[in-house]
Design a protein around this nucleic acid. Structure first.
Lengths: 208, 208, 208, 208
DNA sequence: CATGAATGAGGATTCATTCAT
DNA sequence: GATGAATGAATCCTCATTCAT
C-alpha cells in the first residue's frame, strides 16, 4: 500500500497531444517496441501513470500518434490540386515545394514509423495504405493525367510514373529520421528536389 | 545390441548462416526489439541454446545479419561500372536491371532493417552509411560524371541527381517489406523501373 | 444577477455509511484486494477523493465496514435469551427464526468477508473471533445448558453441540454470497432450517 | 539487455505440482489477488520466471490449483457408498469418519478458496458447484434415501436434510483455514463430529 | 555440440493516495 | 467539503541469457 505524494503541474488539456508528440518523437527514434512508456512520460513532462489516463495501452498511444496530422495535410493538397488552374508542370512544382515545407515538420516521422512497424501492426499498415498511400496516389495520378490530357506532359504510364515523382521526397524524409542523424554525407533537400524536378519535368516534356 | 546409426545432421557449418537468415527475415518483419530469440531459433530449426553458440548476444546476431551479403553485390557493381565501355545510358540501364534482380533477393530486407533500427544502433548506422551508402553514391556519381564528360548526359548537379536515380528503387524495396505486405495497391517493380528509366534518361538527355 | 439556488445534496452525514455499505457489498463480492476504491466511490455515488475524506486508508474503510451492524444484533439476541422464560426447544426455535430473518439482511456479507480476509488481517480476525464468535458461542452454550438443566434437552457435550446447531445457518449465509450466485442448485433457507430444527430437536430430546 | 546467471536446482518434473501446492497454500491464506506470483515462486523454491513456464497466467495457476485433488476423493466416496452393504447409520458414520480424515489434508483449503473467489471467477464457481457440490449432494441424497427406504432413517425431506449433515464439517474446514488460525477458541474436530453424529442419528431414528 | 529448463532484470499496467481547484 | 487529474510504488509478465545434462 503506497502512500507518498508529489508535486504536479496543471497544464490545461493539451496533455494528450503533448504526450502523443513525445511518443511520436521517441517511437521514430527508437521504434515502438524499444520505447519505454516511462521515457515517453518523462519527455512529455508527466508521470508514467498520467500517460495511462489518456491512453489505455501502449498500442492505443501508437494509434493516436499516427492519427494526428497526416490527413489534414493530404486534404489541403487535394484541395490545392483540385482548384489549380495553370499549367501542370507548375502544379507539380507547387506540390514539390509543399513537400519541401513538410520536410521541416515533425510529421515526417510518421512514414518511418509506419514502415518500421507495419509488420507488427497489420491493421495500422492497412489503414495507412488505404487512407494515406492510396489517396496520395490518386491525388498525383489525377495531376499527371491532367497534364497528359492538356498536352503538357508526355504520355507515359501514369501509374508507374508516380514513384519516380515521390520517391526522392520519401527518401529525404526517411534519411532525415535515420541515417541522416548519424553521418555527414550531404543530402541537401532543396538541391535534391530542384535537380529532381528539373530532370523529371524535362523527362516528361511532350515530344515536339 | 548395436543401435542403427541415427541420421545425424548434415551441414553443420551452414548453421550460422541459417540462423542469420532466419534472423534477417524476422528482424525485418517485426523489428529488432520485437523479435524473440526463440522465434529465430525455431525458424532456423534449432534450439534457443544453439543460437548462443554462434552469436554471443542478440546484438551480435544483428551485426552478423547485416554483414552478410551487401558488400559482395556492391563490389560486383563497382567492378561492372569500372570495366563498362559502352554509352552511359546503357550503363545506367544495366545498373537498374541489376537492381531489379536484387529485388527478388532477401537482401532487400537489410535497408529496411537499418532504417528502422538506426536510432538504436548508431554505430551500425554509421557503418552502413559509410560502407554502403557512401560507396553506392560514389559508384553512381562516377557513372553520372562519366556520362556528362562523354557528352551523353546533360550537365546536371550530379550529387543531387543521385536520389532521383535510386529513390524509386529504394521505394520498391521498402514497399516490398512493409506496406506491400498488407495492401493490394499495385506496385509492379518492372513497370515502375521501366517508366522510371524512361523518364530519367529522357530528362538527362543532353540538349541538341 | 442572483442565481437560482442549486439543489444541494441532502443527508450530508449519511455519506460515511453509504460508502461503507457500498464497500461491504463490493468487498464481499470480490474480496478486499480485488476491490478498487474507485468502484466503491462510484457505487456510493461519490468521487474517489470523497472516500478519503471519511476513511484515511482502504484498510480503515475495511474496519469501518466490519464494525457496522454485527454487535447490535448479537446484543439483541443475548437480551432475548436472558429474558426468555418458556421451554428451551421453543427458545432454540426462536433463535433459528431470528437467524432466518437476518439471512435477508446484507449483514450476512460480513462473515464471508471475515473468512476470506482473516489471513490478511490477523487483528481483525482476532477481534471478530473474540467479539463475535466467542460471544455467540457463549450465548448458545447458555441456552443449551439451560435446556439440559431443565431436563428439556438430552445431556450432550454442550460445547461440541453448538456447531451442529449453527453450521447450517452459516452454510446458508456463505452459500448466499458465493456459489449460490452462480448455480441453480436449490437451497431453500426456510425448508433447510425447518428440517434442521426438526432433526436437531428430536436428536436432543431427552430419553424417556 | 540483461546478462546475469544463477544457480539452479533440477528436480524431476514434480515442478508443476510443487508450484500448485505452494499456490494453494498462499491463495488460501491471503486470497488470490493478494498473493504475489513471486511469493508463490519463493515458496515453491523456484524463480518467478519458472512459474510462467508451467502456468501461462496467474489465473491458469489458480485453475490448476483447484483441479488437483478434489474429484479423486469424491469418486472414492461414491464408490464406497455404492458398494456399502450394512445399515445406513453405519454408512453415515463411515462417511463422517472419512471427512474427518480429509480434514488433516491440505485439500480442505480448496473450499475456502472457491468461496472467497467465486465472485471474481464465475466460471470456476459454476464448475465447482456443478462438479463438486452437486455430486456431493447426490451422493448424500442417495445414502439418505437408502436409509429411508430400508426403514433405517425417519422419513424427512432428504434434500433439506443434507445441510444438517455436512454443514458442521464444512464449518470445521473453514474454521481451520480462517479464524482458527487466529484464536484460541477450542474447536475439536473429533469431538464435534462425534457429538454431531450422535445428535443427527438420534434425530433421524425412525419412530418405534 | 545441442538442448531447453531455469533465471531475473526490465517494462507494461494498475490503483491507493494526494492535492490544486 | 467535493472533485478527479496526477503520481509512483507494486505487480504481472516477457524474454535475453546461462548452464546442467
Amino acid at each position: 500500500m503506497p502512500e507518498p505524494a508529489a508535486p504536479r503541474r496543471r497544464r490545461k488539456d493539451a496533455r494528450p497531444s503533448e504526450i502523443a508528440d513525445a511518443a511520436l518523437a521517441l517511437f521514430t527514434e527508437r521504434g515502438f517496441a524499444a520505447t519505454r512508456l516511462e521515457d515517453v512520460a518523462v519527455r512529455a513532462g508527466v508521470s508514467k501513470g498520467t500517460v495511462y489516463i489518456y491512453f489505455p495501452t501502449k498500442e492505443d498511444l501508437f494509434r493516436a500518434v499516427l492519427r494526428q496530422g497526416l490527413l489534414p495535410n493530404l486534404e489541403a493538397m487535394e484541395q490545392a490540386v483540385a482548384t489549380f488552374d495553370g499549367p501542370t508542370p507548375t502544379l507539380l512544382r507547387q506540390i514539390a515545394d509543399r513537400m519541401l515545407q513538410v520536410l521541416d515538420t515533425n510529421l515526417t516521422a510518421i512514414p518511418k514509423l509506419v514502415l518500421a512497424e507495419s509488420g507488427n501492426f497489420p491493421a495500422i499498415a492497412r489503414m495507412y495504405a488505404d487512407e494515406v498511400v492510396r489517396r496520395a496516389m490518386q491525388l498525383l495520378t489525377g495531376a499527371f493525367r491532367r497534364g497528359v490530357e492538356r498536352g503538357e506532359l508526355r504520355d507515359v504510364d501514369v501509374q508507374s510514373a508516380i514513384p519516380t515523382f515521390v520517391a526522392p521526397f520519401l527518401m529525404l524524409v526517411l534519411w532525415k529520421h535515420s541515417l541522416g542523424q548519424h553521418t555527414d554525407i550531404a543530402m541537401d533537400p532543396k538541391a535534391v528536389m530542384e535537380t529532381h524536378m528539373d530532370i523529371l519535368l524535362r523527362g516528361l516534356e511532350p515530344r515536339r
